[in-house]
Write a protein that binds this DNA or RNA. Structure first.
Lengths: 155, 155
DNA sequence: AATAATTTTTACAAAAAAGTAAAATAAAAA
DNA sequence: TTTTTATTTTACTTTTTTGTAAAAATTATT
């Protein structure tokens, strides 16, 4: 249950773009605001572009901007894009996508992580960048609301 | 949302001890059963001992055994013991234990992880090694049961 | 006592992840 | 067409995590 620094930086970069109000932002501008190296910001934005989260304009007057409306990009999208094993936030290392667990007989760990991950995915998929650009307090009530609704439906 | 290989190996080692039926098991015996290097098994068991999860008998005829009844050791205990940052399964890297988030003004990530972690902790704290020594199907229904109860109480 | 089998501890090696830096490429502007 | 400023890509460095190996310490047995 860990948010990596890379993911944190990625989120902050995206929030910086949103909060700037500008059409596009360069890696260099972001790096100054966030206190990160330009190359590092560029690398993260490159990963986010490959995931379809930001779009770019190359060359002079170039820069980065959200590929979609901030309402449509979720926390889960961003975390997945910046997860080292790319396709999915990892569950049990014994479970590859589409495969059965090779330890299915004695792997008692899977159901626990399956349930926990399902909830986390649901939570993170229902938080948008727009909402994250607002303050904690607003998010906190939104989180509670999602949780309550989730439990009402699934239980 | 990731279970590290170290944690997986630790869980398997503990389940091996339980399933063996023996009073104690040596690192060498476990390593043969699990196909892991003896040194690696010893290292993991050393970490588990420091966390108070296993006890040991030194010297010849020595070995490892659970420090408490398998009913009383939870999945959460084990994961925490084998988490690289030892005290706690990590949340947001900006939150240190007992401190406020240094990014409190614009850190919109915290509430999401706080809620997800709370649920995961609850889940993992209510699964015991004894239950894990049984089959998946049993665990699955237990997990569902915990989930339902959690939601009924908290919502 | 000496030996053998064990845990304990330390130090090191390998792998993975995170971060840095610089060369290559692209496009606007002078 | 040259220059400037940007993204893109690759390669490398550092750090962290994981795993290996061996020496030290402990205790039962001979």
């Amino acid at each position: 249950m860990k948010l990596s620094l890379l993911q944190t930086h990625g989120l902050k970069i995206l929030l910086t773009i949103i909060k700037s109000g500008k059409e596009t932002l360069t890696a260099s501008e972001i790096s100054k605001i966030e206190g990160l190296k330009t190359g590092y910001v560029g690398k993260i934005l490159f990963m986010l572009r490959k995931a379809g989260i930001v779009s770019t304009i190359r060359g002079k007057t170039g820069g980065y901007f959200l590929a979609d409306d901030k309402k449509n990009i979720t926390l889960y999208d961003v975390l997945t894009a910046l997860s080292p094993n790319k396709n999915e936030i990892e569950l049990c290392p014994n479970i590859k996508e589409g495969e059965n667990c090779t330890h299915s007989i004695d792997c008692a760990i899977r159901p626990v992580f399956y349930e926990a991950h399902k909830f986390f995915k649901h939570l993170a998929s229902n938080i948008t960048l727009e909402e994250m650009a607002n303050r904690e307090k607003d998010i906190m009530s939104k989180v509670k609301e999602i949780k309550n609704h989730y439990f009402k439906e699934k239980v």
